[in-house]
Design a protein around this nucleic acid. Structure first.
Length: 265
DNA sequence: TGTCTATGATACTACAGGAG
DNA sequence: CTCCTGTAGTATCATAGACA
């Protein structure tokens, strides 16, 4: 393991031969490949779980191949798949993606789940997207590795197209209209994703918000860092669901020990 | 010819288990 | 208890081949 960097360095000019890592997450495949996985799982096990080998077989791949791994990574990044290790299942968003009635809104949400895409969207929403070269420069500034800039841009453009963000022209990034109002209101009765857990609740909850609520621990200690992370995710979910509002800041402040007066002994 | 897709390889990270 | 090592999983890079 340790000799490999030397091999790279000695290849030729060591300058800039080292691998640069992106500091912002983005998928290497497009939204369609993520939806394909969601479709495969939905078609075979519905809301149940499957493992690597099954999913690979259903999509005519080998579970050992990197393509398969990259595609799993892509689907998880879009938020349509979840699971630990070799086990996979649809997320709430994934179930909506395979539902023709909700697919449009769900794809738009999936698109904005990707940190890089979210950042680009925030930067250019309502405006005109620059040409490819300039867009790539922006992506590099946002944290994409120099060598991955074109790949990131290509995946971005395809995914944006598939999510309906280019409906007003390929030089404009416009959030599809359904996202704000359509889905949250339309499950008046049961049927809201059987094992949702919180399905028994009453209020009309956005699936993204519902999924976050499901993440809440039942009991026990829950440290501040985790709480802040959860609250930040909820903040983003609010922005996606209800639109951007004034900046909300979530921070941790150490407790100033006023408990001295409370200590009985 | 340029772009896209698929694939193998590699770097990095996290975690468990054992030795001192 | 701490440090070291091995292992597994994830993220990223590089490139060959297919296709328009």
């Amino acid at each position: 393991m340790t000799g490999q960097t030397e091999t790279i360095d000695s290849a030729s000019k060591p300058e800039q031969r080292t691998r640069q890592r992106s500091t912002i997450s983005f998928p290497y495949m497009d939204l369609r490949s993520a939806v394909a996985f969601a479709d495969a799982i939905h078609a075979h096990v519905g809301t149940g779980e499957c493992d690597d080998d099954q999913l690979a077989a259903w999509t005519s791949q080998s579970a050992k191949s990197s393509t398969f791994r990259v595609q799993v990574y892509t689907a998880r990044m879009f938020g349509v798949l979840e699971g630990d290790g070799p086990r996979h299942r649809l997320t709430e968003l994934g179930r909506q993606v395979v539902d023709p009635n909700q697919a449009r809104a769900a794809k738009a949400r999936a698109f904005l789940n990707v940190p890089l895409y979210r950042a680009v969207f925030d930067k250019y929403k309502g405006g005109v997207i620059p040409p490819a070269a300039a867009l790539e420069r922006d992506m590099v500034q946002l944290g994409v590795a120099e060598k991955q800039r074109d790949r990131a841009r290509q995946a971005f453009e395809r995914s944006a197209d598939q999510a309906g963000f280019f409906e007003h022209g390929r030089n404009r990034l416009v959030q599809p209209g359904v996202i704000a109002g359509e889905t949250p209101q339309q499950q008046p009765s049961a049927e809201n994703g059987g094992n949702g857990g919180s399905g028994g609740g009453s209020g009309p909850k956005d699936p993204l918000i519902a999924a976050l609520i499901q993440k809440l621990p039942q009991s026990g200690p829950w440290d501040a860092v985790q709480r802040v992370a959860w609250l930040n995710l909820m903040k983003m979910a609010f922005q996606l669901t209800y639109g951007a509002a004034d900046e909300i800041e979530i921070t941790v402040k150490p407790v100033i020990s006023t408990s001295a007066s409370q200590q009985p002994s």
